[in-house]
Design a protein around this nucleic acid. Sequence first.
DNA 1: CTTGGAAAGTCAACAAGGCTGACATAAACT
DNA 2: AGTTTATGTCAGCCTTGTTGACTTTCCAAG
Lengths: 172, 172
Amino acid sequence: MMADRGTANALVSGESLLFLTDEQLRRGIEAMFFAYRGFTADPDRILQNYAYGRAHHRAIHFINRSPGTTVNNLLDILGVTKQSLNRVLRALVDDGLVESRVGTRDKRERHLFLTDAGTALERELSDAQRSRMRAAYRAAGPEAVAGFRTVLEQMMDPDMRRHYQTTTESAS
Amino acid sequence: MMADRGTANALVSGESLLFLTDEQLRRGIEAMFFAYRGFTADPDRILQNYAYGRAHHRAIHFINRSPGTTVNNLLDILGVTKQSLNRVLRALVDDGLVESRVGTRDKRERHLFLTDAGTALERELSDAQRSRMRAAYRAAGPEAVAGFRTVLEQMMDPDMRRHYQTTTESAS
DNA sequence: CTTGGAAAGTCAACAAGGCTGACATAAACT
DNA sequence: AGTTTATGTCAGCCTTGTTGACTTTCCAAG
């Protein structure tokens, strides 16, 4: 059944496809479930000390990644309603972690920046998260990491892939 | 441009480690974020038609995987409080999707099973989720899938890895 | 210059699904 | 007999998501 449609690689002889069985897929599904829990565990722990939640972390992360981003852009990335995001942003602005500057070109827009305090919290959170990710990467090795990223990218909604693409010329 | 992607391949001599840069780790973090959204999108859509949420899906999934599992075991896997799980289980039992049988060996325990209706919903949900996973797997290829699973496993909390290990004798 | 509509903010109300704490029951263990 | 374990349940709280309605600001097209 199913004509292979480019199983990407060699599969030299037998067209194995054993990695596509329902059982293998179920294992992948559970791997995502358990891994995502690990993935968020460290930041969640830290956030408790600040009376913030995962929603604040997400906002902080993407403001840090794209300083000056607008509220609308953030709404698109995060996929929540403006009311929901606004509640979170208000807390962060009130607490002095985020600065909201009226746009110069278009004064309706607000451009979001982390303050020094915001940058410090971002650092604390992402240090923890990166640390776990680094350990996983190191233990798995570069080829596994490449596969990891390839599969995750395929799993995204195509619409979201464009936000992920923001790649980074990373300067030489 | 960028020799960047090459780290997946050769790495023959130089102990490159370029895949462990903060920038690469940040990309991995965002990949997890966006992919997890895609991963849950289809079931979430279906669940709306039944007035259920992700919590119900998780319970249904693991009861299906391990028919006859106890409440305590489920609590351990899901990592929530019994009050939280109980609210969900009560709804599923009341709606006739899950059956709760008193244990024979130990009558304090309740063993959980999906009814036919429960199995039908499980099927609908996992068909959707597997479909996306299958497409991702197929597009990525078996070696990428192996890497994907390796990294995810490393990312789990060690405690959770044992639940993941429960390979499969669930005698489907 | 007026006006339509986009961007943003805000208020109110509600729901899902986490949490804690307290308490009840039955069964098993010591 | 007394303690622990497994489960269930009530009550209340919090975070974070949702709709809907409304206002203010302000760009841009008519």
